[in-house]
Design a protein around this nucleic acid. Structure first.
Length: 484
RNA sequence: GCCCCCAUCGUCUAGUGGCCUAGGACGCCGCCCUUUCACGGCGGUAACGGGGAUUCGAACUCCCCUGGGGGCACCA
C-alpha cells in the first residue's frame, strides 16, 4: 500500500456465537495488515441484532482474540452504545428521500419472495412502499402496522469499486433491491451501522470475507447518500471451506477457536497456519514466527480462490511450533495441562520429564499429555487399550521376554545418575536371541498401556521400580502364564 | 431465477509471455536412522478443467463453455 493516510483497520464481529475460525482468519489478516503498516487495529462489536447478540459472546470473542495474540489498539466499541448516531443518519436519509418508510412486515416480504422464486422471478423487495404519499403512510400506520426504514437503491447505473484483492467489481443497480436499514423496533441494520461507524472511526481499509462482497455496494451507497467523502479500500478475502468446498461450518469439524485451544494447539501455530490460507510470502516459507508474518504480509499477495481448511496440515504445523518452543516454555504448558487433567497436586517433575520426552514427537499439547497418561493414572485405573493389546497378544515368546525383563528390572541399577541406562533392556532381549525391535511393542503396552508412546526405558525409570514391576506382572497374568 | 466472485498436484500454494519437460509444503508410498510410535534425512507419486483468439512463443492476456462457491433477510 502506498496510501499516505495512517492505516486504520477494524475487526467487527457480531457477538452471536463463539469466534469462528473463518472470522479469526479475517481478524488475523486485519491485524497483520495493521501491524505491517504500523497502523491501528480497532475492535468493534456489531451487536445491532439484539435478538441474537449475547454479552457472554462479547467477552468470549475478546478472550479468544487475546489468546490468539491479536491485540487491538482501540475498542471494543459496541454499536449498542451508539444507536443515536445511526438514528440521526437514518433521519438524514429519510429527509433527503434516499430512504423511505416501509410498512411491509418481514413475513409479508418473505412470502412474496417465495412466490417470486416459485415463479422463476428474482427475489428481493418489490418496492411496494417505495412511493407512498403521506396519506397512504398514515393509513398504513393507522392499521397499526410496524414501520421500518428502507434504503432506496438507484434505479439505474452501476456500482463499482476497486477491490484490493480482486480488482474492479461492478454490478448493475437494477439488480440490487431496496433493503431495510432500520428495523421496525427502531434498531439499525448492519449496512447502516457499518457505513456510519467506518466513517466515524476513520477506517481506511476493510478486509473481510468474500461472503460480504455483494453487501459492499450497499454500504458504499449509504456512505454516498450520507454525503461522506471518500471511502475505505475494500479487500475481500477468499472463503475458508470444508471438504465439500462449501463455506466452513460446524459439520466439517472443529470451527470454534476454543476447540483448537482445548485440543492443545499453540496460538502461534494457528496464526501461522491461518495466515497461509489465502496468502503466501514471496519466498515460500511456511513455518514462520509472528514477527516474520508481520514483516512479510502483503495484501496484494492474497489469493483469490477459496481455501480448504486442512486439519492434517494444521497438526503438522503445530508440531513444528512445539519443536520450536524453548524447552521451559513447553514444560510450563505441559505442567499446566497435566494439572488441568490430573489435579493441581500432580507431580511436576514427571510432567516436566514428559514434556522433554514428548517435544520431539508431539503434534499437540493434548496428544503429548495423553501419551503421558500412564505416569499419572492410578494403578487401579491403569488399562491397556484394546487395539494395542490385539497387536501384541500373540508376541513371539512374549512370556519369556516379560520374565527376563522383570528379572532385570528387579535387580538393575536404579539411580538418578544411571537414569534410563539402568532400565535399558535391549541386552536382556538379545540374550534370548531375539531382536529388540520385534518384541518391544509388548513392553510398551505393558508399561504405557499403548503400543506407541514415550521412550520405554525413560518411561520405566520415571514410573518407578515397583509400579513398573506390577505392570509387567499384570501382563504376565493376562498372557496366561501366572506369576511363575 | 437473477447478480457477483473464483478455477495449477488429493490439499495449501509458487508462477504475472520465453528461466516451466510447472517449483515448494501437507498428505500418501518407499528407503535410511531408530528403544515402539514419532522426529529427522533421502527418494517417489501427483496438477495448469475444455474450446477458441492474440503472439514467433502461453499456466500466465482476451472471449466462450463447463465446473465450484457466495449473495439476493427487519443476520452480519
Amino acid at each position: 500500500m502506498t496510501d499516505s493516510r495512517a492505516v486504520r483497520v477494524r475487526f467487527a464481529p457480531a457477538p452471536t456465537g463463539y469466534l469462528h475460525v473463518g472470522s479469526a482468519r479475517a481478524a488475523l489478516f486485519n491485524w497483520l495488515f495493521a501491524r505491517h503498516h504500523g497502523g491501528t487495529f480497532v475492535l468493534r462489536i456489531e451487536d445491532t441484532d439484539a435478538a441474537r447478540s449475547r454479552e457472554e459472546w462479547i467477552v468470549g470473542i475478546q478472550d479468544t482474540l487475546t489468546w490468539l495474540g491479536l491485540d487491538w489498539d482501540e475498542g471494543p466499541f459496541l454499536q449498542g452504545d451508539r444507536l443515536d448516531r445511526y438514528a440521526a443518519a437514518a433521519d438524514t436519509l429519510l429527509a433527503s428521500g434516499r430512504a423511505y418508510e416501509c410498512y411491509c412486515t418481514p413475513e409479508e416480504v418473505s412470502a412474496r419472495n417465495d412466490v417470486a422464486r416459485a415463479d422463476g422471478r428474482s427475489p428481493g423487495y418489490d418496492g411496494r412502499c417505495r412511493d407512498l404519499n403521506s396519506d397512504q403512510r398514515a393509513a398504513l400506520a393507522g392499521e397499526g402496522r410496524p414501520r421500518s426504514i428502507r434504503f432506496r437503491t438507484p434505479d439505474e447505473g452501476v456500482s463499482s469499486f476497486t477491490d484490493l484483492v480482486r480488482g474492479e467489481v461492478t454490478v448493475e443497480w437494477s439488480t440490487i433491491a431496496d433493503f431495510v436499514i432500520v428495523r421496525s423496533d427502531g434498531s439499525p441494520v448492519f449496512f447502516l451501522a457499518n457505513a456510519v461507524d467506518d466513517a466515524e472511526m476513520a477506517i481506511t481499509h476493510v478486509l473481510r470475507g468474500e461472503d460480504l462482497l455483494d453487501s459492499t455496494h450497499r454500504v458504499l451507497a449509504i456512505r454516498e447518500a450520507l454525503g461522506i467523502d471518500g471511502s475505505p479500500e475494500y479487500g475481500h478475502l477468499p472463503l475458508l471451506v470444508g471438504a465439500d468446498r462449501a463455506k466452513l461450518s460446524k459439520r466439517h469439524g472443529a470451527v470454534a477457536l476454543e476447540e483448537f485451544r482445548d485440543s492443545g494447539f499453540l496460538p502461534d501455530a494457528l496464526v501461522n497456519y491461518l495466515a497461509l490460507l489465502g496468502w503466501a510470502p514471496e519466498d515460500g516459507r511456511e513455518v514462520m514466527t509472528r514477527e516474520e508474518l508481520i514483516t512479510e504480509f502483503d495484501i496484494g499477495r492474497v489469493t483469490h480462490s477459496a481455501a480448504f481448511f486442512d486439519y492434517q496440515k494444521l497438526d503438522w504445523m503445530n508440531g513444528e511450533h512445539i519443536r520450536a518452543l524453548a524447552t521451559d516454555q513447553l514444560e510450563a504448558l505441559v505442567v499446566d495441562a497435566v494439572r488441568a487433567r490430573w489435579g493441581e497436586e500432580s507431580n511436576r517433575e514427571l510432567a516436566v520429564a514428559a514434556a522433554r520426552l514428548g517435544q520431539e514427537r508431539a503434534t499437540t499439547i493434548k496428544a503429548l499429555v495423553d501419551q503421558a497418561d500412564f505416569l499419572f493414572v492410578g494403578d487401579a485405573d491403569f488399562s491397556i487399550s484394546p487395539d494395542s493389546w490385539e497387536k501384541v497378544a500373540a508376541s513371539e515368546r512374549g512370556m519369556e521376554v516379560l520374565d527376563a525383563v522383570h528379572a532385570h528390572i528387579t535387580t538393575c541399577e536404579w539411580t538418578a545418575e544411571a537414569g534410563a541406562g539402568g532400565t535399558d533392556v535391549r541386552g536382556v532381549i538379545e540374550a534370548l536371541g531375539l531382536k529388540p525391535r520385534k518384541v518391544m511393542s509388548l513392553l510398551y503396552v505393558a508399561i504405557e498401556g499403548r503400543h506407541a508412546g514415550l521412550p520405554l526405558f525413560e518411561a520405566i525409570h520415571l514410573l518407578g521400580r515397583d509400579r513398573a514391576l506390577a505392570r509387567l506382572d499384570a501382563v504376565r497374568v493376562r498372557l496366561g502364564g501366572g506369576l511363575g
